[in-house]
Design a protein around this nucleic acid. Structure first.
Length: 178
DNA sequence: CCCTGATTCGC
DNA sequence: GCGAATCAGG
């Protein structure tokens, strides 16, 4: 890949926004994080305050610790086709609701009611996802508390073992539910 | 082991 | 100039 003016500009922008080299490399495409870092140095762009890990300056504030609205539905992922629906658009209920309700019913409801059984999500940003992190979305993408499950997923699976079951429902199992 | 940026050095 | 390999750190 070539460092066109356009790409360099994007690099500068993203770097100044605090994105990591690997993230920038991913967005530019066709380059490694090393390439990005090397370019940054050659451009004499200001490096990160302190090397290693996450620059503390890049994480301005910690959201409130208390979870505002704990519920089983808080963790319900929104399928892309639903999320992409224009506000107010009419959606064919037969198309999506059936599957959804099935999923929701399948969620184990804990005796104490309030906590989702999916133990913990490592509140990962889109930025932190790797080949081995669960990419199950949690929350409303339009909300700033949106994040990903991030738990370890087997081998090359995009989801952890728990979310795998929601993502890939065996056809036999689906038939059983109809 | 996952990640981060920094540096080196052959190309 | 480029970036893989390496280093150093969380």
């Amino acid at each position: 890949m070539n460092w066109t003016d356009e790409r360099v500009e994007k690099l500068k922008k993203l770097w100044s926004e605090g994105l990591s080299a690997s993230q920038i490399a991913a967005q530019l495409g066709g380059v490694s994080r090393n390439a990005v870092i090397g370019k940054v140095h050659r451009l004499n762009l200001p490096g990160r305050a302190k090397a290693g890990g996450t620059p503390s300056a890049a994480r301005p504030k910690r959201p409130a610790v208390a979870t505002p609205r704990p519920s089983n539905f808080a963790a319900r992922p929104v399928p892309a086709r639903v999320a992409a629906r224009p506000a107010g658009a009419i959606v064919a209920k037969e198309d999506i609701d059936a599957d959804f309700d099935a999923q929701i019913e399948q969620l184990p409801v804990p005796a104490n009611g309030n906590k989702v059984v999916v133990p913990m999500s490592r509140k990962l940003e889109l930025t932190q996802l790797t080949e081995r992190t669960c990419k199950w979305p949690i929350g409303d993408p339009l909300n700033d508390d949106f994040h990903f499950c991030g738990n370890e997923s087997p081998d090359n699976s995009p989801y952890c073992t728990y979310h795998q079951r929601l993502a890939y429902q065996p056809s036999a199992e689906r038939r059983r539910m109809r």
